[in-house]
Design a binder for these strands. Structure first.
Lengths: 207, 207
DNA sequence: ACCGTAGCACTAACGGTTACGGTTTTAAAA
DNA sequence: TTTTAAAACCGTAACCGTTAGTGCTACGGT
């Protein structure tokens, strides 16, 4: 048990990286659809089964880099300044994430994604999973039951903001516009929450 | 050219229906994953290629029934009473759609869908397409350019309401709660639209 | 020095999907 | 009516992502 220190971990990580690199290189060179899993495996000099032991699917090869999307979102909620309200913190993070993926350096990858229906679909369903995590983080932050409708709704809306902004001609302005709407929605939700829950939760820790 | 009258259309529709029926029967009997395309084709007594000329994918076999989801949404916008505001009309339709799929009769199908990740993913990406159509319908109704951010946002939010409500313990209440939020968001969007577009569109037809 | 296991390889297969080439049915033109 | 062209359908074989099964090897703990 304990922690399998050293060489093994490094070798594994190296293999994984080798595969990801080979995949990205081939995808950008010949196009996502024109490259088969067997091609990637050959280029990385590993067996197909090895490839799938590191990545759950072909699409996952492409989104290997932004694994931390989910973590950044939840952290934006949990690690924010004690006096900062929820929605602006979310807005800042979404803004940063949008900027990050519309930056010039990442352009070819995102063009590739936009061109492949498979990849677009995969991304959307990935973001939906992220929304679930975000909803739980929000609920926890507010001492509400994890499946509270308002929390899940706001989380979905935030993800929508990301998706829509990425496609907008002026992504930055789009984030701002959509978040004005989210802000209003969140305010309206508070009224519902207060009227539905007149007595404050006894276990609530003030924040 | 002209209209291919009669028999051909009927036979084609019959074949399609025969396939859909066979598929649904087998899926409910043995479970979605346990039934292969080749099984469905055999049961419907057609070739596999014929099956795929009627349905784009295995998942599409399951969602054959609610093809009209998209049409009902856009019609809820375009066919509403001249004095009825947009969001309440949407709310009514979403409410009806949610009720429809949480009705007792349709329970086994939706249970099957909920149990298969494949089907859930397919449905979500289908709804996303619906959101695009809805956004265009809304934009057209308001004499705005088809890609207006606020319209696309409201359309996504409406789809979110549907998805979230379906999973909620009290779907009907969830729709109402979420639509209060959407109502507020829509109001906020109006302010942005007015400030960004001080001069009324010359070609606008009053409605 | 030895054992347990994590990482990897190889082959073969499975299941959804498509390409291909051919036959029958239907609608309409000649 | 006969002819023609398209549409629907068929059967086979293949493609491609993905997984199961089996074993080998190198590493880490003892």
């Amino acid at each position: 048990m304990t922690v399998p220190s050293g060489r093994r971990e490094r070798k594994k990580a190296a293999t994984r990286q080798k595969i990801a690199d080979a995949a990205l290189r081939l995808f950008l060179e010949r196009g996502y659809d024109a490259v088969g899993i067997r091609d990637v495996a050959a280029e990385a000099d590993v067996a197909v089964t090895t490839l799938f032991s590191h990545f759950a699917s072909k699409e996952a090869l492409v989104f290997e880099q932004d694994q931390d999307f989910e973590q950044r979102l939840t952290q934006a909620v949990t690690d924010r300044a004690p006096d900062e309200p929820l929605v602006p913190a979310l807005r800042r993070e979404i803004q940063a994430l949008v900027r990050h993926c519309t930056a010039d350096g990442a352009a070819p990858i995102w063009r590739m994604i936009d061109e492949s229906p498979d990849l677009r679909e995969y991304e959307e369903s990935m973001r939906l999973r992220h929304a679930e995590s975000l909803a739980m983080a929000i609920a926890a932050d507010l001492d509400l039951p994890p499946a509270t409708t308002a929390c899940r709704t706001i989380a979905r809306f935030a993800i929508d903001a990301y998706s829509l902004a990425r496609e907008a001609t002026d992504p930055e302005a789009a984030v701002n516009e959509i978040f004005q709407m989210i802000e209003a929605a969140w305010k309206a939700a508070h009224e519902s929450l207060l009227s539905a829950k007149p007595e404050p939760t006894p276990t609530a820790k003030s924040r």
